[in-house]
Design a protein around this nucleic acid. Structure first.
Lengths: 154, 154
DNA sequence: GAAAAAATGTGAGTGACACATACAATGTTG
DNA sequence: CAACATTGTATGTGTCACTCACATTTTTTC
């Protein structure tokens, strides 16, 4: 009976492709990123961690003693933003700063016990989140998508 | 000799860093989106417009009289965020609010002369920005990328 | 070896925009 | 009419991007 039950009472939405804005690749990347971020924050509402914060914790566990500047380069963030995140993670007791023996400008970063535990919890949420995302694609499509996206930021 | 346990279907990845954070699709979407946003802001440094602001102007020009709630649904933003952007665009003289004759809860939005002019300038920058982005892909790849991304947010 | 340049961390400030919450006015529906 | 949903508005909080400025330390250059 009902063909395409549009959810809008006023029915103000014509075909989404009518607007020229849908012809922009950047627009779709933006919307997809927003959708992923949205689902991420829902999944992580209990832990209270953002994508960036998890990424930073992850990197620090992967490479203990990593410097803030390295994190910035890895995640394409400027130093000020990295510092803000590290400060927050330090305030919450997940990360500790230490002195570097080689380069006295640097601070070596490492996770605390609490940081390791939180990241372990986070990994479970990430697995769930990634499943939600990857279920849309075949393995080949996933590989294709990652390869195309990689061309954008490398 | 079976060393890959359902990780990758084929050796499509030249990078060996697929374990860890690089194995997450969401991570790549995030990085790509950040790179696009970064280039966008560079291209638009003269105009002083963000992606969202341009998108809102674009939608209003496309559908004069559109309501804020419609914009929110179209761009996946909540009402408060839409209002903040419309306020900013109104303060800068690009957008004007008007009363709706059908529904007195609604405000019809339309562009001012200045708004049309700014959007026209913006379109030039967008073309340049999109070229920067699309030059990485063949037309078929672009279509593929958009199709895959669309699955994420619809 | 000293001066210049670069890298690193830090701080303060601004801006964008997500979230949540609450409220008033208006429509819609039982 | 009463109950509910929608729309716009206002307010506050949090994240994180940008910038500029500054001190320290390392590296490069002369």
């Amino acid at each position: 009976m009902n063909t395409m039950d549009d959810m809008e009472p006023l029915g103000l939405f014509p075909d989404p492709r009518l607007s020229g804005i849908d012809g922009l690749v950047g627009f779709h990347i933006r919307l997809a990123s927003a959708a992923v971020y949205q689902h991420f924050t829902e999944t992580f509402s209990d832990l209270g961690l953002t994508q960036k914060q998890v990424a930073v914790l992850w990197l620090i566990e992967d490479q203990p003693g990593i410097a803030q500047a390295d994190i910035g380069r890895r995640l394409k963030m400027d130093r000020a933003s990295v510092m803000a995140i590290v400060n927050r993670m330090q305030d919450r007791g997940f990360v500790q700063r230490g002195a570097s023996s080689q380069d006295r400008r640097r601070q070596t970063l490492s996770l605390t016990e609490s940081g390791h535990a939180s990241l372990e919890l986070a990994r479970g949420c990430i697995a769930e989140h990634e499943k939600w995302l990857k279920d849309r694609f075949t393995p080949a499509e996933t590989a294709m998508l990652v390869e195309l996206l990689r061309r954008v930021y490398v």
